[in-house]
């Protein structure tokens, strides 16, 4: 049995003028113990999807089960089994760290001591501030407390909605290290993120854009299905280089990517022609390399298809 099974799940929002399909016939399976990433920008439908799966929002179509329980019929059963960390900090700001944790443990008929082993690694980092009110914690500390509270009843499936948004690179890395350790405790984790590079840290991912799933699979399988000859290009003047690449017939697509520009060549063109073209445009210090695409390259191609 899958830990999470989603079948053509749909959510519509109605405004005065229009009907917005926030989630449109989304289907995927998550196996037990998997770290599954929903990768997509703002507006992809990640939060609506998570809120349906945690029974906080009713779907307008399709179905889904979490640990075998139906998200519409077995609401109470699911609420006991899942942990949910919303994107927006939602703990009690005027309770202390310790009070928040005790509160959530009590709600779930358990105690902090009973499940302390599960949160220990994370909790020790905020323990020095345990008498501080949650509202007075820094962003990183709030995030750690929220994770502890979502874990304190030992959930079967953990939903983390954009836990690393607005967080600096160091704290992001620390957070993913924590997730890896939780995975070792056999908790199934669904995590959403707008950072494409975090896809590589998941067992499997679904790439999502404007309510639809573009692709599902392991990061490696998604990358290997990217059938294009991709090159990285660099020259002295990067912006003029990009403009010239965009104007060239030989490039199916070109865009900046960190230190280099990425260029996807059209079928009948090769790297020699690329070099000749760039020389004809008088670019200096031109460097061209072949490269492996990454998830962001794949996402951009899928978006444009």
């Amino acid at each position: 049995m899958s830990a999470v099974s989603v079948n053509k799940l749909t959510k519509l929002y109605h405004t005065k003028k229009e009907r917005v399909k926030a989630v449109e016939e989304v289907s995927f399976e998550v196996s037990k113990g998997e770290l599954f990433g929903i990768i997509g920008p703002d507006g992809a439908g990640k939060t609506s999807l998570f809120r349906m799966l945690t029974t906080l929002l009713l779907p307008d179509g399709g179905s889904a089960t979490v640990d075998g329980s139906d998200i519409v019929k077995d609401v109470k059963a699911i609420r006991k089994k899942v942990g949910y960390m919303p994107g927006r900090f939602s703990l009690y700001q005027d309770l202390t760290v310790q009070e928040n944790l005790d509160f959530f443990a009590t709600i779930f008929n358990t105690t902090v001591i009973e499940n302390y082993d599960l949160i220990k690694d994370i909790y020790v980092q905020i323990e020095p501030f345990k008498t501080r009110r949650a509202g007075k914690l820094s962003g990183g500390m709030k995030q750690k407390l929220a994770l502890c509270c979502a874990l304190i009843h030992r959930p079967v499936v953990l939903f983390l909605d954009e836990p690393t948004t607005g967080v600096d690179a160091v704290s992001r890395k620390e957070f993913w290290d924590m997730l890896k350790r939780l995975k070792d405790q056999a908790i199934t984790i669904l995590v959403s993120t707008p950072y494409m590079d975090e896809a590589a840290l998941c067992d499997r991912v679904a790439l999502m854009q404007t309510g639809r799933i573009l692709s599902t699979g392991t990061p490696t399988s998604i990358i290997s299905s990217f059938a294009s000859n991709l090159f990285t290009v660099k020259a002295e003047k990067m912006y003029p280089l990009l403009c010239d690449l965009e104007a060239w017939d030989g490039a199916r697509d070109s865009y900046s990517f960190g230190e280099f520009h990425h260029v996807i060549l059209n079928a009948q063109y090769d790297v020699g022609q690329l070099r000749t073209y760039l020389d004809s445009k008088a670019h200096s210090n031109v460097e061209i390399h072949t490269t492996q695409p990454n998830i962001e390259d794949c996402f951009m191609q899928l978006m444009q298809n």
Partner: peptide, 24 residues
């Protein structure tokens, strides 16, 4: 101040093109 947070990768690059143009 963090102008591109949460923006999709294609639009993020379009945004940077606007930055380059302004810089020019």
């Amino acid at each position: 101040d963090e102008p591109t947070g949460g923006v999709d990768p294609v639009t993020r690059r379009e945004f940077w093109n606007l930055i380059y143009q302004a810089s020019e």
